[in-house]
């Protein structure tokens, strides 16, 4: 490196390359994305937010909720599942024997006999009954066909796998680029001090719940470490007509630390209401081409 120009050139080329890769490339590839279709439906995805929910994103941004919460679900893979839905004329015990004989005789199924038998062990006939879950779809298709032939109804499903998905209510599939199409700024977050919120609108769709949680997280989760956002609420003397927006705190025998003094009510500010509207708009429940899963019954 003899001259400043050489250094300049090296740095220019190096940073220029990554600029093309990580700024220009994504702008061209993702910046022009448009909404997609929800699988097996005519609905469009993502749904554009309206009114309060749109403003709520700005409240979320301004208060830095993303410092503690992510809005992205990860998935490690996908599994094919087969469940028994209706046994028709059969009894649980003879169906078990029938399946065991299939697993013992059909060559393609032999590899899976342990897995299926394990699922059926101790089964007394409760429905629906998951009999196979795994990467392979031969079992699902073949066994499903064979059972259909004898009048047993089964359901084949594709499900996303991974810890995020397994946590009930966090979401049913991974987050993909198109989910964020209408978010600005995109609030992905990078720390899970609190739960992921990508699907909070499905998990807790009740506005009053959201408001109460914001006002006093501990009133809902007793050992919550989420800070209360009391500054988004005002404590008001109840006037001639009580405010229609006032928080409906759960009725308790004794007033506790969260209940306002008698004659007072807790009224959410406009910001709090917008934030709650935004939260219930967060959903991760539509199957997409990029992230497929089977949402509804596809019984054979």
């Amino acid at each position: 490196m003899k001259t400043g120009f050489c250094v300049f050139l090296a740095a220019f080329v190096a940073l220029g390359a990554s600029w093309f890769g990580f700024v220009y490339g994504p702008l061209k590839q993702l910046g022009v994305a448009t909404e997609t279709k929800v699988l097996q439906s005519d609905d469009k995805w993502p749904v554009q937010r309206t009114g309060d929910a749109t403003l709520g994103l700005q409240v979320y941004r301004a208060n830095g909720c993303a410092a503690c919460h992510t809005e992205q679900i990860r998935q490690t893979g996908a599994a094919n599942e087969l469940s028994l839905m209706n046994l028709g004329v059969h009894q649980a015990t003879d169906l078990k024997d029938f399946i065991a004989s299939l697993l013992g005789t059909v060559p393609e199924l032999m590899n899976f006999s342990n897995a299926v038998a394990g699922n059926l062990a101790g089964w007394k006939g409760e429905l629906p009954k998951l009999i196979y879950s795994g990467a392979d779809d031969t079992v699902v298709l073949l066994l499903g066909d064979k059972l259909k032939a004898v009048g047993v109804k089964t359901e084949a499903r594709v499900v996303a796998t991974g810890a995020d998905i397994a946590r009930m209510g966090w979401g049913v599939r991974q987050s993909v680029a198109v989910d964020y199409l209408y978010d600005s700024p995109v609030q992905l977050g990078n720390l899970r001090a609190g739960p992921d919120l990508a699907n909070i609108g499905v998990r807790s769709p009740d506005l009053n719940w959201q408001l109460q949680h914001l006002y006093a997280p501990k009133s809902i989760t007793p050992n919550s470490t989420m800070p209360a956002f009391r500054y988004l609420f005002t404590v008001k003397k109840i006037g001639a007509i009580p405010s229609p927006d006032a928080l409906k705190l759960p009725l308790t025998q004794q007033p506790n630390e969260f209940t306002p003094p008698p004659g007072y009510e807790i009224v959410p500010t406009a910001e709090a209401k917008q934030l709650a509207a935004y939260l219930v708009s967060l959903k991760n429940n539509a199957p997409l081409y990029e992230a497929p899963f089977t949402p509804i019954t596809a019984a054979k």
Binding site: S18, P26, L27, L30, G31, A33, L181, V186, L188
Partner: peptide
Amino acid sequence: LFLVCNHPPRGVVQAVIGWW
């Protein structure tokens, strides 16, 4: 220029530029 302007790019590109 891209993120703190009146018309930031749509969607997750914002995050990519941020990470960069």
